[in-house]
Simulated assay, not measured.
Amino acid sequence: MIEVGIVGGTGYTGMELLRLLAGHPQVRVRAITSRGNAGTAVDDMFPSLRGHLDLQFTAPDAETLGRCDLVFFATPNGTAMQMVPELLEAGTRVVDLGADFRLKDLPTWSQWYGMEHACPDVVEQAVYGLPELNREAIRGARVVANPGCYPTAVILGYLPLLEQKLVDASFLVADCKSGVSGAGRKAQVHTLLCEANENFKAYGAPGHRHLPEIRQGLAQIQGSDVGLTFVPHLVPMTRGMQGTLYARLTGQANLQELYERRYAAESFVDVLPPGSHPETRTVRGTNMCRIAVHRPADGDTALVLSVIDNLTKGAASQAVQNMNLMLGLEETAGLQQIAVLP
């Protein structure tokens, strides 16, 4: 049985990790940490897990975590980089759901996250954890940087077009919407019910910290820098995310066939039939990304619709997918949930 630990288990992504790992056939959660809730039973905080996990939150302890096969960090940015080097020395593998190891350019990372990086050497060896792009590198990784939610939806949406050099990579537009849970579980005015309900707004238009991450991923596919306009929006729903992606075509191809062929072997990317419009509710609580591709009026614009659950494929379930790859397990293990409707 694989033993794992979770650092920072009281947020939405930590809760989703617990839910998924509790149902994983080959994994046991050895430790889950929270400085502020040490001694509290997990099922007291998350009653939905009653009968599935008999654990208490504990203070982070490197010795205990170092006895795990793998540790997940579901912590604020800047936390994982303080503990990861010691865990690596102990032979423990790491999946960080925060942003500490996502960006390879450290001055850019410091600009967006407002601090100096504590372990640049670990950044160099970390693998960006988008399996559909970096599967083989993830298998051998000791540290995986789990992608952000917006980057997951956007990169998967653009990937086939950029691989085949079919679009003008200097002018890409990603118009994205996310449910309120993407802001995390902490109390904030803009996520209060009376503020977010019956409201719709853009944010981060001058610049969002996921922008350099998305550009980095797209540049890896393209083989050169890309020009991307990225505008996120907050929508009054709990979870779910859609990327509406635009690109100017420069080559000829049957876009439907292109996407179906590229993702035919991917368990967690579903290319919908021609003319479809994916819905966020069809991926709720799953590790699935559903994609539809259009060419409006047979013009020169490729329009891609990409939907995921921001808490699962955009965070926790993708982290479990990465864990499965890193530890030599079946990639789909523990990730076969069907979305709950309505």
Rank of each mutant, 00 (worst) to 15 (best):
20 L>E: 01
3 E>C: 14
66 G>M: 04
292 A>F: 01
59 A>D: 02
282 T>N: 07
330 E>N: 14
225 D>Y: 04
284 R>L: 04
28 R>N: 13
306 S>W: 07
99 A>I: 01
271 V>Y: 07
223 G>Q: 01
172 L>E: 00
53 L>F: 04
47 P>S: 10
191 T>Y: 08
57 F>C: 12
163 E>P: 05
4 V>E: 07
20 L>Y: 06
10 T>Y: 04
256 Q>A: 13
256 Q>R: 06
304 V>N: 03
175 D>T: 12
60 P>L: 05
174 A>C: 03
325 L>R: 08
322 N>T: 12
76 P>L: 11
254 N>D: 15
197 N>A: 14
274 P>I: 04
317 S>Q: 06
73 F>C: 13
59 A>N: 02
68 C>L: 10
89 E>I: 03
335 L>Q: 10
63 E>P: 07
108 T>G: 03
268 F>N: 13
202 A>E: 03
162 L>T: 07
253 A>L: 07
1 M>I: 07
53 L>D: 03
198 E>W: 15
206 P>A: 14
146 N>R: 01
282 T>E: 06
229 T>P: 03
86 E>T: 15
289 C>F: 09
14 G>H: 02
122 V>S: 09
30 R>L: 07
237 M>L: 14
248 R>Y: 01
171 F>P: 00
82 Q>R: 13
16 E>M: 05
65 L>G: 12
296 P>E: 11
108 T>Q: 07
24 H>I: 10
337 Q>F: 12
184 G>K: 03
248 R>W: 00
97 L>G: 02
195 E>Y: 14
311 L>Q: 14
288 M>W: 03
130 L>S: 08
317 S>E: 03
12 Y>E: 08
